[in-house]
Design a protein around this nucleic acid. Structure first.
Lengths: 140, 140
DNA sequence: TAAAACTACTTGCTTTTTGCAAGTGTAAAT
DNA sequence: ATTTACACTTGCAAAAAGCAAGTAGTTTTA
């Protein structure tokens, strides 16, 4: 059990201790928006994470209580990765990332309807997505 | 002029190309919430960034159009670092980081009044802080 | 006005992390 | 019974981070 001591107790630094790298948020994104649940699915993401980094980050996310890892019932060699409530609560952060990038990075390819929905009714969209994710959580 | 090609055009990945490390957001935080404007002030932050990394990140933030670097008028050996509008627009992301960390990391030492203000009236708080920062921007 | 201190870096070197390719072990399909 | 699928693990080279010391103008101090 590795316990690297924190650089500070600032809430922003606290988040960066988990998410201060190029990959962790992409895994959360894939579960949150792309309905991915399996190791192989994360590996196949457009950004091409390498397998050792993926294993490491999944383990860190599990240790941090942001995702759970359970055996797949109909497919014993597979594990299912799901967001916990703590993970679902990252949704507002990711939505703000999308808003910011869509505003300033013109190369970003984002479903404009989706982007407009966030801007027009952020709270409604938050509710819808987080309810959907919460349902996945309980139907174990 | 280095041009590392992007891993994807996903808006979340796009943000991570700039902020996917342990330090960049801390610099933005220091300008945004702690009123810091000078190299030496960033160096003295609680988290103790090393000087070469600070120089590198300031340069990247400037290249990305998130901060500006100008000579200090009354003190010629100093440079002033300020947020651009693009930088100010990171505020919602940082506020959501604070909300999330304050909810889940009990070690976080956060001004509870500040935290409550974010939860109770996020929009008002966003307006107040971003107006303050916008004023710093124009009084050059 | 010469020396010391301040400010914003740069450089060199060691340690840590990442990225890539190949390998391992169990489960499922043929 | 053999191959394929899946979820990793291992080894090594390359990149990034961390640390200490050095540099080059600017301002302060003696």
């Amino acid at each position: 059990m590795k316990k690297t001591k924190k650089k500070s107790n600032c809430p922003i630094n606290s988040a960066l201790e988990v998410f201060g790298d190029k990959w962790t948020f992409l895994i959360v994104r894939d579960i949150m928006f792309n309905g991915k649940h399996y190791y192989g699915e994360f590996l196949n993401a457009e950004e091409k994470i390498s397998t050792n980094i993926l294993a490491d980050r999944l383990s860190l996310l599990e240790q941090s209580g942001i995702i759970t890892k359970t055996k797949d019932n109909n497919h014993k060699s597979k594990f299912v990765y799901r967001l916990t409530q703590k993970g679902i609560d990252l949704l507002p952060i990711l939505l703000e990332f999308i808003v910011w990038s869509s505003k300033y990075d013109k190369d970003v390819d984002e479903d404009n309807a989706f982007f407009e929905s966030i801007r027009k009714d952020k709270i409604k969209m938050l509710d819808e997505i987080s309810n959907k994710l919460k349902n996945e959580l309980i139907e174990d």
